[in-house]
Amino acid sequence: MANSTRKKPVRQPVKSSQKTKPILIVLILAVIIALIVLYQTLFAAAVDTEQQVSVEKGDTYYSLLAKQGWTDNALALPALAKAYVSLSADKPLQAGKYTIPSGASLASIMDILQQGGQSEQVVIRIVEGKTIKDLYQAIKTTDGVTLELLTPPADGYAWTDVARDNAAVAAALGIDAPNQHLEGWFAPNTYHFNAGVSDKAILQKLYDDQKRILDEAWQARDDNLPYQTPYEALIMASIIEKETGIADERSLVSSVFVNRFAKDMKLQTDPTIIYGLFDRYDGKIYRSNINEKNEYNTYQINGLPITPIALPSKESILATMHPDKSDVLFFVATGNGGHKFSKTLDEHNKAVEEYRAVMRQKERQ
């Protein structure tokens, strides 16, 4: 009988690709689940209904969203939501009231807060040539402004009250001005802020704008101007602002005053008389007002008044730094818009008579 042997089956080695397939499947599933969790955490609705949110000074993303409970509303993983928000935890938010729409996700809420979103707006229009008294009153009486520095609005706001407000504003903003008189230091313009903005934030913005405008204009000024400091130029800009609202006249008015300085003439500008009367001004200038000696009346003093007399625009500041080249020394209103400029006193006196004739005719009509 012939011998026979049974061969043992040879076991085939398992390929590495076969070993990794289950691992890859697990990893892919884990990534898919993580993406679903991430999406649900960041992009699923975190609020059910439209909400109005007030952001207070000092609020950050994390403190606000945690206070509102929106991180806890994350459907999948509140801890992940908190970690996401914490990346911007220390970034301050602009105070104001924000509208968070129904169905907003955590990511969209963050974007709304960052961009200002649908926040309610406070609009403050500061007209060039107005005074700081007008500015303070506008801020105080605008809905949506939080008062931190200025006294609450009241009937009969007087210049003595302005002095008190000036002291608080100068201390808070670090403005170094003579006797803490802040006239002229705030840029007139139309400004938009989020509701809830503080008066300090508004005034800081206006002051920073005006200081930048003045500094840049001073650096680029013409040679041989009669002003020794930027502040003196600011004072002159406020006078130019009050003398004419016509853009094409500003530089020529500026040259009149430069020419008067060169001849040691008094500036003799009516707006300085008016400003120096403060609450006593009743709409008219009397002979007694012209003869009154004070630090503003340029009919009585040599040179500039002690402070600006209004909030000058950028255009008036630039006109101060770049006066026209002329030999005119006088100007007077025509009565029909604009001014007539003269080189001599005789010419000026005739122009004054023409102005008075025009006004008499208008009164008769």
Results as ranks from 00 to 15, higher is better:
316 S>P: 10
263 K>C: 09
360 R>M: 08
345 L>P: 02
222 D>E: 14
259 N>E: 06
261 F>Q: 01
306 I>T: 13
354 E>V: 14
159 W>M: 01
312 P>G: 00
219 Q>I: 09
222 D>I: 09
177 A>K: 04
34 A>E: 11
37 V>I: 15
59 D>N: 05
240 I>N: 03
146 T>L: 03
69 G>H: 06
174 G>A: 07
117 G>N: 01
283 G>E: 11
266 K>Y: 06
198 S>C: 12
334 T>H: 08
114 Q>M: 05
261 F>K: 02
102 S>E: 14
91 K>M: 13
6 R>T: 13
44 A>R: 00
302 N>G: 15
61 Y>R: 03
111 D>C: 00
119 S>W: 07
362 K>M: 09
28 I>N: 00
140 K>I: 10
197 V>P: 02
182 L>W: 08
257 F>L: 11
101 P>G: 07
40 Q>F: 11
307 T>R: 01
190 T>Q: 11
113 L>T: 00
177 A>E: 05
66 A>S: 11
151 T>R: 11
51 Q>C: 04
148 E>S: 11
361 Q>A: 14
333 A>N: 15
146 T>W: 02
157 Y>H: 02
217 A>Q: 04
221 R>Q: 09
4 S>I: 08
166 N>E: 05
13 P>W: 14
214 L>K: 03
280 R>W: 04
182 L>M: 07
173 L>A: 12
24 L>Y: 08
117 G>S: 02
44 A>H: 02
9 P>Q: 10
223 D>Q: 12
